[in-house]
Design a protein around this nucleic acid. Structure first.
Length: 676
DNA sequence: CCGCAGGTAG
């Protein structure tokens, strides 16, 4: 008999199915009591991964011991056969066998995965009655985990508090729960409590708490815990490393996260992804793209997390071609259909001015939710397709999808960018009367822009008064409207108020300078410039770029350092002379320096957007494709006019994305209808 | 037998 026992144990240990089967057959032939070896055989079959055979034996077993029930239940849970596990649990209760700590920890996991809170609560009740809740760390941890996953953090906390002898896992379960519900402060408190009780955190605890530090931007604790990771010898654990990366990048210490990444000897796909996400969130998109390429070279397969993040990097830099390649990768890997990836694709095409492609991604969506609608409405909005945005909004309502605050930001932006003033006012009135939507500063900013467009300055100013914490952008929006309509006195009227609110805002000062410059008040310009100097405010230099054949060419005003500067200038002069015959007149009111007229004209000619377009036309003169250029600031009035003429002259469509919106130039007309 | 690390629309 002992020979059988040890042979079964051996085959289970070595996972040798052949031995196991041989022993099994031998036992049956010898006529030994099956009930004696039954549970050992079941355990062995489970360990060898042959659950079907284990099930068969289990059904034949006459008196089933709790241990065997548990082996069966937990093997089902491990293999994701949650329903079978619960079925067994029910049969077990029906047979009059009382669950023990092992049963409970397995079954709570099953209820959690199946999303049946009620059953979980019932089992919890039984665990309380049987005294497992407060006395067994395993049971308590799985109950805490269950409540956390059902978003019942208060219940999780109650269970946690009742446990007499709290261990690492119990603490960790609660910390993880808080972390995943954005209750990072609570997570840190519990962590400190744990450390105070001299319970040593392990790799799971540290991985989670580091992310909480990152979310809180708590670098002091983050670094402290980094030290704990090192001291605990957990530095080489992948999850610790990943969390360290995340913590540093969420605290904006992107250099430190790069350092951590470079010291890794192994990176999982999650580590790669976290690193990429951190780079994108810290504005290091180019680096993110090259890290992504490196990841592919290392044969690590990206998933929807990775792809949506890298697509956002492409959007920010308007790298349309790279984005299209990643779109192809997304389809190849079957990640299209994931809502994050699809939203990122719509965002990409929207941000690159390719509304048709954004729409085609949108049309292929199988599950339409508020985010996908918002993404598409925003893509329309920023490209000036106001009516399309409103139509989509209607469709959303027909489908019974409730719009949220972001929907209305996009809708107001759509009205604004398409000059649909009345529609915008109506929508705004609707939002005010709809108490489900929280009005934010962004809604007001859109609205002020919209009213400014219609020269309704007083109304706009009154709206600002309603905002609790008006920011500089709000005032700048109003001032910009004054600037566009040439209302210098109006602008001066608002100026004092604005500087009260934002005395040190660089953008505001620069806008004021520009307003003075455009009306020729050079004394005021000089005054403003010295204020800007005194306040040590920096103006970001105007820059335009264009992506041709996957290569980005950047231009600054008057900057002739491009290797093809000669060809560019030739092209530029030719374009200027030709469009002059069509009616283009350089408008020096857009030159914001006090120069002689002739110098003003030549300074206009070398604006960065003109250089970028001349280059693009020279480089692609044999094609008829759309030209896409990008500018970090707003496009200048003279350039805007010039580009309209160039689109008429060359018959090429030109799309310009500036800091605020898109301009689609076609046949001498711009989609912004000359308001931006 | 419990617990861990990535991403949304502005």
């Amino acid at each position: 008999m002992n020979v059988y026992t040890s042979l079964i144990a051996q085959s289970a240990h070595k996972k040798s199915l052949t031995t196991l089967k041989a022993v099994h057959t031998h036992i049956i032939k010898s006529g030994f009591l099956f009930s004696f070896f039954g549970h050992k055989l079941i355990d062995a079959y489970i360990k060898c991964g042959i659950v079907a055979e284990a099930c068969k034996l289990f059904d034949e077993l006459p008196n089933r011991h709790i241990v065997t029930w548990n082996s069966m239940i937990s093997s089902h849970v491990r293999r994701g056969k949650t329903n079978e596990a619960i079925e067994l649990y029910k049969n077990m209760l029906f047979d009059g066998v009382l669950p023990d700590a092992y049963t409970f920890s397995a079954i709570f996991k099953a209820f959690t995965e199946l999303g049946v809170l009620r059953h979980g609560q019932k089992a919890h009740g039984l665990a309380v009655v049987l005294g497992f809740e407060v006395s067994d760390g395993f049971v308590a941890s799985s109950i805490v985990d269950m409540y956390a996953k059902f978003d019942k953090m208060e219940d999780a906390r109650l269970v946690f508090d009742r446990v007499l002898d709290k261990d690492v896992v119990l603490f960790t379960a609660l910390i993880v729960g808080y972390n995943q519900h954005d209750l990072d402060g609570e997570a840190l408190e519990v962590f400190e409590d744990m450390v105070g009780r001299r319970i040593k955190p392990n790799e799971y605890t540290l991985a989670s708490i580091l992310v909480s530090c990152g979310n809180l931007g708590d670098l002091i604790n983050g670094k402290l815990i980094h030290g704990v990771v090192v001291k605990s010898g957990l530095e080489s654990v992948v999850a610790s490393q990943t969390s360290l990366l995340t913590m540093y990048s969420k605290c904006s210490l992107v250099e430190d996260s790069i350092k951590v990444f470079n010291q890794l000897n192994y990176a999982s796909h999650v580590t790669w992804t976290s690193f990429i996400v951190g780079l994108v969130q810290n504005g290091r998109e180019e680096v993110a793209v090259s890290v992504f390429r490196e990841m592919i070279r290392c044969s690590v397969i990206p998933n929807h997390f990775t792809l949506s993040s890298i697509l956002h990097a492409c959007s920010s830099l308007a790298m349309l071609e790279v984005g299209e390649q990643i779109h192809a990768v997304t389809m190849k890997l079957g990640v299209d259909g994931n809502k994050y990836a699809d939203a990122a694709l719509i965002h990409l095409y929207g941000k690159c001015g390719n509304v048709e492609k954004a729409r085609s991604v949108f049309n292929l969506l199988t599950e339409l939710d508020v985010v996908s609608f918002n993404s598409m409405i925003y893509a329309y909005a920023q490209n000036g397709f106001g009516h399309e945005a409103l139509r989509l909004f209607e469709r959303m309502k027909i489908l019974g999808l409730a719009p949220n605050g972001v929907t209305f930001i996009s809708i107001l932006l759509a009205c604004n960018n398409a000059g649909l003033v009345e529609e915008g006012c109506q929508i705004f009135a609707f939002i005010r009367n709809n108490h489900n939507i929280e009005l934010t500063r962004d809604h007001f900013t859109c609205m002020i822009d919209l009213l400014g467009r219609a020269r309704r300055f007083e109304e706009a100013a009154m709206l600002i008064e309603e905002v609790k914490n008006p920011d500089a952008i709000l005032w700048r929006t109003l001032l910009n409207a004054c600037k566009i309509h040439g209302e210098i006195e109006m602008a001066e009227k608002f100026m004092a108020k604005m500087l009260d609110h934002a005395p040190r805002d660089g953008g505001t000062h620069i806008l004021l300078t520009n307003i003075y410059a455009s009306s020729g008040k050079w004394d005021n310009v000089i005054e403003m410039k010295s204020t800007i100097r005194d306040l040590k405010l920096k103006k970001s230099p105007a820059m335009s770029w264009v992506d041709i054949d996957r290569e980005v060419h950047t231009f600054m005003a008057g900057d002739l350092s491009h290797p093809r500067a000669h060809e560019i200038l030739e092209m530029l002069h030719e374009l200027i002379e030709k469009v002059k015959t069509l009616g283009y007149n350089p408008d020096t009111k857009f030159v914001l320096q006090n120069l002689e007229e002739e110098k003003k004209i030549s300074s206009l000619y070398y604006h960065s957007e003109k250089l970028a377009i001349a280059f693009a036309l020279w480089k692609t003169c044999s094609r008829s494709t759309t030209i896409r250029i990008f500018k970090n600031l707003r496009v200048c009035g003279d350039c805007h006019n010039w580009i309209k003429f160039v689109s008429l002259l060359t018959g090429r469509d030109i799309i310009a994305r500036d800091a605020k919106r898109f301009h689609h130039f076609k046949g001498g007309i711009c989609s912004c209808k000359d308001y931006w």
